[in-house]
Protein backbone atom coordinates (compact mmCIF):
# COMPACT_ATOMS: atom_id res chain seq x y z
CA UNK A 1 0.00 0.00 0.00
CA UNK A 2 1.30 3.41 -0.88
CA UNK A 3 1.88 6.11 1.68
CA UNK A 4 -1.05 8.03 0.39
CA UNK A 5 -3.41 5.15 0.87
CA UNK A 6 -2.01 4.40 4.30
CA UNK A 7 -2.69 7.93 5.35
CA UNK A 8 -6.21 7.75 4.05
CA UNK A 9 -6.75 4.47 5.85
CA UNK A 10 -5.55 6.00 9.10
CA UNK A 11 -7.96 8.89 8.68
CA UNK A 12 -10.82 6.54 8.04
CA UNK A 13 -9.96 4.48 11.09
CA UNK A 14 -10.01 7.65 13.16
CA UNK A 15 -13.34 8.62 11.66
CA UNK A 16 -14.67 5.21 12.50
CA UNK A 17 -13.59 5.44 16.12
CA UNK A 18 -15.02 8.92 16.56
CA UNK A 19 -18.27 7.86 14.93
CA UNK A 20 -18.55 4.78 17.11
CA UNK A 21 -18.14 6.78 20.29
CA UNK A 22 -20.45 9.57 19.17
CA UNK A 23 -22.82 6.91 18.13
CA UNK A 24 -22.92 5.59 21.63
CA UNK A 25 -22.98 8.87 23.50
CA UNK A 26 -25.33 11.05 21.49
CA UNK A 27 -28.47 8.92 21.66
CA UNK A 28 -28.04 8.64 25.39
CA UNK A 29 -27.81 12.38 25.70
CA UNK A 30 -31.14 12.87 23.97
CA UNK A 31 -33.66 13.98 26.54
CA UNK A 32 -36.34 11.42 27.15
CA UNK A 33 -36.47 7.78 27.96
CA UNK A 34 -37.11 5.10 25.37
CA UNK A 35 -39.40 3.23 27.69
CA UNK A 36 -41.54 6.29 28.20
CA UNK A 37 -41.84 6.84 24.50
CA UNK A 38 -43.42 3.45 24.09
CA UNK A 39 -46.87 4.66 24.86
CA UNK A 40 -46.74 8.38 25.42
CA UNK A 41 -48.23 11.00 23.21
CA UNK A 42 -51.51 12.74 22.83
CA UNK A 43 -54.47 10.48 22.43
CA UNK A 44 -52.72 7.22 23.07
CA UNK A 45 -53.92 4.90 25.72
CA UNK A 46 -52.39 5.51 29.07
CA UNK A 47 -50.17 2.61 29.88
CA UNK A 48 -49.00 3.07 33.39
CA UNK A 49 -45.79 1.25 34.01
CA UNK A 50 -45.71 -0.04 37.53
CA UNK A 51 -42.29 0.41 39.11
CA UNK A 52 -41.44 -3.29 39.05
CA UNK A 53 -42.17 -3.65 35.35
CA UNK A 54 -40.17 -0.53 34.62
CA UNK A 55 -37.22 -1.90 36.54
CA UNK A 56 -37.43 -5.26 34.84
CA UNK A 57 -37.59 -3.63 31.43
CA UNK A 58 -34.69 -1.33 32.17
CA UNK A 59 -32.54 -4.20 33.22
CA UNK A 60 -33.59 -6.17 30.15
CA UNK A 61 -32.37 -3.41 27.87
CA UNK A 62 -29.34 -2.81 30.06
CA UNK A 63 -30.36 0.78 30.67
CA UNK A 64 -29.84 0.50 34.41
CA UNK A 65 -26.12 -0.19 34.13
CA UNK A 66 -23.45 2.49 34.52
CA UNK A 67 -22.58 4.26 31.28
CA UNK A 68 -19.13 2.71 31.04
CA UNK A 69 -20.50 -0.76 31.28
CA UNK A 70 -23.11 0.02 28.68
CA UNK A 71 -20.26 1.21 26.46
CA UNK A 72 -18.27 -1.96 27.05
CA UNK A 73 -21.30 -4.06 26.16
CA UNK A 74 -21.85 -1.95 23.09
CA UNK A 75 -18.28 -2.46 21.90
CA UNK A 76 -18.47 -6.18 22.58
CA UNK A 77 -21.63 -6.29 20.58
CA UNK A 78 -19.99 -4.44 17.71
CA UNK A 79 -17.13 -6.91 17.60
CA UNK A 80 -19.45 -9.90 17.61
CA UNK A 81 -21.88 -8.26 15.22
CA UNK A 82 -24.64 -8.05 17.80
CA UNK A 83 -26.20 -4.64 17.55
CA UNK A 84 -28.78 -5.18 20.23
CA UNK A 85 -32.54 -5.32 20.31
CA UNK A 86 -34.69 -2.51 19.02
CA UNK A 87 -36.95 -1.21 21.72
CA UNK A 88 -39.62 0.27 19.50
CA UNK A 89 -39.53 -2.29 16.69
CA UNK A 90 -39.28 -5.27 18.99
CA UNK A 91 -36.80 -7.07 16.79
CA UNK A 92 -33.03 -7.53 16.64
CA UNK A 93 -31.35 -4.48 15.11
CA UNK A 94 -29.23 -6.64 12.79
CA UNK A 95 -32.18 -8.15 11.09
CA UNK A 96 -33.95 -4.81 10.79
CA UNK A 97 -30.91 -3.25 9.15
CA UNK A 98 -30.36 -6.20 6.86
CA UNK A 99 -33.98 -5.95 5.79
CA UNK A 100 -33.81 -2.25 5.12
CA UNK A 101 -30.37 -1.57 3.71
CA UNK A 102 -30.90 -3.21 0.30
CA UNK A 103 -33.78 -0.85 -0.36
CA UNK A 104 -31.67 2.20 0.39
CA UNK A 105 -28.96 0.76 -1.80
CA UNK A 106 -31.43 0.19 -4.60
CA UNK A 107 -32.61 3.79 -4.52
CA UNK A 108 -29.17 5.33 -4.26
CA UNK A 109 -27.39 3.16 -6.79
CA UNK A 110 -30.03 3.27 -9.45
CA UNK A 111 -30.57 6.99 -9.14
CA UNK A 112 -26.83 7.65 -9.29
CA UNK A 113 -26.20 5.40 -12.24
CA UNK A 114 -29.14 6.89 -14.06
CA UNK A 115 -28.13 10.46 -13.43
CA UNK A 116 -24.48 9.86 -14.28
CA UNK A 117 -25.23 8.12 -17.53
CA UNK A 118 -27.49 10.98 -18.50
CA UNK A 119 -24.91 13.51 -17.35
CA UNK A 120 -22.15 11.92 -19.41
CA UNK A 121 -24.31 11.66 -22.50
CA UNK A 122 -25.64 15.17 -22.34
CA UNK A 123 -22.55 16.77 -20.87
CA UNK A 124 -20.22 15.69 -23.64
CA UNK A 125 -22.64 16.88 -26.26
CA UNK A 126 -23.34 20.25 -24.75
CA UNK A 127 -19.70 20.99 -24.14
CA UNK A 128 -19.27 21.29 -27.87
CA UNK A 129 -21.15 24.53 -27.93
CA UNK A 130 -19.43 27.07 -25.81
CA UNK A 131 -21.63 30.10 -26.24
CA UNK A 132 -24.98 30.63 -24.59
CA UNK A 133 -23.65 29.15 -21.37
CA UNK A 134 -26.27 30.68 -19.16
CA UNK A 135 -29.04 29.01 -21.07
CA UNK A 136 -27.67 25.73 -19.83
CA UNK A 137 -26.57 27.00 -16.50
CA UNK A 138 -29.78 28.63 -15.32
CA UNK A 139 -32.11 25.63 -15.61
CA UNK A 140 -29.38 23.33 -14.37
CA UNK A 141 -28.85 25.39 -11.27
CA UNK A 142 -32.57 25.74 -10.76
CA UNK A 143 -33.18 22.01 -10.80
CA UNK A 144 -30.23 21.47 -8.56
CA UNK A 145 -31.69 24.03 -6.17
CA UNK A 146 -35.06 22.42 -5.73
CA UNK A 147 -34.64 20.44 -2.51
CA UNK A 148 -35.28 16.77 -3.11
CA UNK A 149 -38.22 16.54 -0.75
CA UNK A 150 -39.87 19.55 -2.38
CA UNK A 151 -39.52 18.06 -5.83
CA UNK A 152 -40.62 14.74 -4.37
CA UNK A 153 -43.78 16.11 -2.83
CA UNK A 154 -44.73 17.92 -6.02
CA UNK A 155 -44.12 14.81 -8.11
CA UNK A 156 -46.05 12.80 -5.57
CA UNK A 157 -49.07 15.00 -6.16
CA UNK A 158 -48.70 15.23 -9.91
CA UNK A 159 -47.71 11.69 -10.82
CA UNK A 160 -49.11 9.83 -7.85
CA UNK A 161 -52.43 11.56 -7.30
CA UNK A 162 -53.49 13.78 -10.19
CA UNK A 163 -52.22 11.36 -12.77
CA UNK A 164 -52.16 8.16 -10.76
CA UNK A 165 -49.29 6.52 -12.58
CA UNK A 166 -47.23 5.60 -9.58
CA UNK A 167 -47.88 4.20 -6.14
CA UNK A 168 -47.67 6.71 -3.33
CA UNK A 169 -45.72 4.68 -0.86
CA UNK A 170 -43.87 1.49 -0.19
CA UNK A 171 -41.27 -0.47 -2.11
CA UNK A 172 -43.45 -3.18 -3.62
CA UNK A 173 -47.10 -4.15 -3.66
CA UNK A 174 -48.08 -5.92 -0.51
CA UNK A 175 -49.51 -9.38 -1.03
CA UNK A 176 -48.75 -9.48 -4.71
CA UNK A 177 -48.02 -12.96 -5.94
CA UNK A 178 -46.02 -11.55 -8.81
CA UNK A 179 -42.86 -13.41 -9.59
CA UNK A 180 -39.86 -13.02 -11.84
CA UNK A 181 -40.19 -10.21 -14.33
CA UNK A 182 -43.44 -9.00 -12.83
CA UNK A 183 -41.89 -8.72 -9.43
CA UNK A 184 -38.98 -6.74 -10.82
CA UNK A 185 -41.39 -4.48 -12.64
CA UNK A 186 -43.41 -4.03 -9.50
CA UNK A 187 -40.33 -2.99 -7.56
CA UNK A 188 -39.24 -0.68 -10.38
CA UNK A 189 -42.70 0.83 -10.47
CA UNK A 190 -42.54 1.63 -6.79
CA UNK A 191 -38.97 2.89 -6.96
CA UNK A 192 -39.62 5.04 -10.03
CA UNK A 193 -40.69 8.24 -8.32
CA UNK A 194 -38.07 8.24 -5.55
CA UNK A 195 -35.36 7.36 -8.05
CA UNK A 196 -36.55 10.04 -10.42
CA UNK A 197 -36.39 12.63 -7.67
CA UNK A 198 -33.00 11.53 -6.40
CA UNK A 199 -31.51 11.34 -9.87
CA UNK A 200 -32.83 14.75 -10.80
CA UNK A 201 -31.12 16.29 -7.85
CA UNK A 202 -27.81 14.60 -8.57
CA UNK A 203 -28.07 14.87 -12.36
CA UNK A 204 -27.37 18.54 -12.67
CA UNK A 205 -24.29 18.72 -10.54
CA UNK A 206 -22.91 15.67 -12.33
CA UNK A 207 -23.79 17.31 -15.60
CA UNK A 208 -21.93 20.46 -14.68
CA UNK A 209 -18.87 18.47 -13.63
CA UNK A 210 -18.84 16.50 -16.86
CA UNK A 211 -19.30 19.59 -18.91
CA UNK A 212 -16.52 21.62 -17.34
CA UNK A 213 -14.22 18.64 -17.34
CA UNK A 214 -14.88 17.97 -21.01
CA UNK A 215 -14.40 21.63 -21.83
CA UNK A 216 -11.08 21.60 -20.06
CA UNK A 217 -9.84 18.45 -21.75
CA UNK A 218 -10.93 19.48 -25.22
CA UNK A 219 -8.50 22.36 -25.05
CA UNK A 220 -5.58 20.01 -24.51
CA UNK A 221 -3.10 19.92 -27.37
CA UNK A 222 -3.53 16.24 -28.07
CA UNK A 223 -7.23 16.72 -28.76
CA UNK A 224 -6.47 19.55 -31.13
CA UNK A 225 -3.92 17.30 -32.72
CA UNK A 226 -6.50 14.59 -33.22
CA UNK A 227 -8.86 17.10 -34.75
CA UNK A 228 -6.13 18.30 -37.08
CA UNK A 229 -5.46 14.74 -38.11
CA UNK A 230 -9.06 14.76 -39.31
CA UNK A 231 -10.40 12.09 -37.01
CA UNK A 232 -14.20 11.91 -37.00
CA UNK A 233 -15.90 14.00 -34.37
CA UNK A 234 -17.51 11.12 -32.34
CA UNK A 235 -14.17 9.37 -32.02
CA UNK A 236 -12.54 12.50 -30.73
CA UNK A 237 -15.39 13.17 -28.40
CA UNK A 238 -15.67 9.76 -26.83
CA UNK A 239 -12.27 8.17 -27.19
CA UNK A 240 -9.99 11.13 -26.74
CA UNK A 241 -11.87 13.57 -24.62
CA UNK A 242 -14.24 11.56 -22.53
CA UNK A 243 -11.71 9.06 -21.26
CA UNK A 244 -9.61 11.68 -19.63
CA UNK A 245 -12.54 13.82 -18.67
CA UNK A 246 -14.13 10.99 -16.73
CA UNK A 247 -11.37 10.91 -14.16
CA UNK A 248 -12.68 13.71 -11.93
CA UNK A 249 -16.11 12.18 -12.35
CA UNK A 250 -15.04 9.02 -10.55
CA UNK A 251 -14.23 10.92 -7.39
CA UNK A 252 -17.42 12.84 -7.79
CA UNK A 253 -19.39 9.63 -8.18
CA UNK A 254 -17.73 8.16 -5.13
CA UNK A 255 -18.51 11.15 -2.97
CA UNK A 256 -22.07 11.17 -4.18
CA UNK A 257 -22.46 7.47 -3.59
CA UNK A 258 -21.09 7.80 -0.10
CA UNK A 259 -23.31 10.63 0.99
CA UNK A 260 -26.48 10.09 -0.97
CA UNK A 261 -27.41 7.05 1.13
CA UNK A 262 -27.84 9.38 4.08
CA UNK A 263 -29.32 12.09 1.91
CA UNK A 264 -32.11 9.79 0.85
CA UNK A 265 -33.67 9.97 4.32
CA UNK A 266 -36.09 12.70 3.35
CA UNK A 267 -37.18 10.90 0.23
CA UNK A 268 -37.60 7.63 2.08
CA UNK A 269 -39.75 9.37 4.66
CA UNK A 270 -41.78 11.14 2.01
CA UNK A 271 -42.49 8.00 -0.01
CA UNK A 272 -42.71 5.75 3.06
CA UNK A 273 -39.93 3.72 1.46
CA UNK A 274 -38.62 0.98 3.76
CA UNK A 275 -34.97 2.02 3.72
CA UNK A 276 -32.46 2.63 6.50
CA UNK A 277 -33.11 6.36 6.26
CA UNK A 278 -36.69 6.02 7.33
CA UNK A 279 -35.58 3.61 10.00
CA UNK A 280 -33.17 6.16 11.47
CA UNK A 281 -35.88 8.80 11.36
CA UNK A 282 -38.33 6.62 13.21
CA UNK A 283 -35.65 5.57 15.66
CA UNK A 284 -34.99 9.22 16.44
CA UNK A 285 -38.66 9.85 17.02
CA UNK A 286 -39.00 6.96 19.43
CA UNK A 287 -35.58 7.41 21.06
CA UNK A 288 -34.68 3.87 20.22
CA UNK A 289 -30.96 3.85 21.17
CA UNK A 290 -29.92 0.46 19.83
CA UNK A 291 -31.61 1.07 16.51
CA UNK A 292 -30.22 4.59 16.20
CA UNK A 293 -26.73 3.32 16.86
CA UNK A 294 -27.11 0.53 14.37
CA UNK A 295 -28.47 2.71 11.59
CA UNK A 296 -25.93 5.44 12.19
CA UNK A 297 -23.18 2.84 12.12
CA UNK A 298 -24.39 1.53 8.79
CA UNK A 299 -24.20 5.00 7.27
CA UNK A 300 -20.75 5.66 8.72
CA UNK A 301 -19.32 2.36 7.56
CA UNK A 302 -20.87 2.87 4.17
CA UNK A 303 -19.32 6.31 3.76
CA UNK A 304 -15.91 5.15 4.90
CA UNK A 305 -15.95 2.07 2.71
CA UNK A 306 -17.07 3.91 -0.41
CA UNK A 307 -14.59 6.73 0.13
CA UNK A 308 -11.76 4.30 0.58
CA UNK A 309 -12.73 2.33 -2.49
CA UNK A 310 -12.91 5.54 -4.49
CA UNK A 311 -9.42 6.46 -3.34
CA UNK A 312 -8.09 3.08 -4.40
CA UNK A 313 -9.84 3.22 -7.75
CA UNK A 314 -8.70 6.73 -8.43
CA UNK A 315 -5.13 5.79 -7.67
CA UNK A 316 -5.14 2.86 -9.98
CA UNK A 317 -6.53 5.02 -12.77
CA UNK A 318 -4.45 8.12 -12.29
CA UNK A 319 -0.79 7.40 -11.67
CA UNK A 320 -0.11 11.01 -10.75
CA UNK A 321 -1.74 10.57 -7.38
CA UNK A 322 0.91 8.11 -6.26
CA UNK A 323 3.51 10.80 -6.30
CA UNK A 324 1.65 12.87 -3.72
Amino acid sequence: MSRHLQRRAATYLLVFLVAVSLNFLLPRAIPGNPLEELSSGLGNLPIQLDPETLKALQSYYGLDRPLLEQFRRYLEGLVTGQLGYSISYRAPVNSLLLQRFPWTLLLTLSSLVLSFCAAVLLGTRSAKRRNGEWRVLLPAVFFESVPSFVLGSLLLVLLGVKLPLFPLSGAYSAFSDAEGVWQVLDIAHHAALPVLVLSTSSFFSAYLVVRSSVLLVSQEPYVLMAALKGLPEPIIRYRYVLRTALLPLITFFGVRLAYSAGGAILIEVLFAYPGVGRLIYEAVLSHDYPLLQGAFLVFTVWIIAVNFLTDCLYMSLDPRVKEV
Partner: peptide, 22 residues
Protein backbone atom coordinates in the same frame (compact mmCIF):
# COMPACT_ATOMS: atom_id res chain seq x y z
CA UNK B 1 -30.30 21.44 -28.06
CA UNK B 2 -29.28 20.67 -24.53
CA UNK B 3 -32.65 21.73 -23.32
CA UNK B 4 -34.39 19.53 -25.70
CA UNK B 5 -32.29 16.51 -24.91
CA UNK B 6 -32.93 17.06 -21.23
CA UNK B 7 -36.63 17.11 -21.81
CA UNK B 8 -36.43 14.11 -24.10
CA UNK B 9 -34.58 12.29 -21.38
CA UNK B 10 -37.23 13.11 -18.82
CA UNK B 11 -40.00 12.06 -21.15
CA UNK B 12 -38.21 8.83 -21.84
CA UNK B 13 -37.91 8.20 -18.14
CA UNK B 14 -41.57 8.90 -17.64
CA UNK B 15 -42.49 6.68 -20.52
CA UNK B 16 -40.48 3.80 -19.16
CA UNK B 17 -42.06 4.20 -15.78
CA UNK B 18 -45.50 4.66 -17.20
CA UNK B 19 -45.12 1.45 -19.17
CA UNK B 20 -44.36 -0.50 -16.09
CA UNK B 21 -47.27 1.31 -14.50
CA UNK B 22 -49.67 0.11 -17.15
Amino acid sequence: MTHRSGIVFLIWLLAVCACSGD
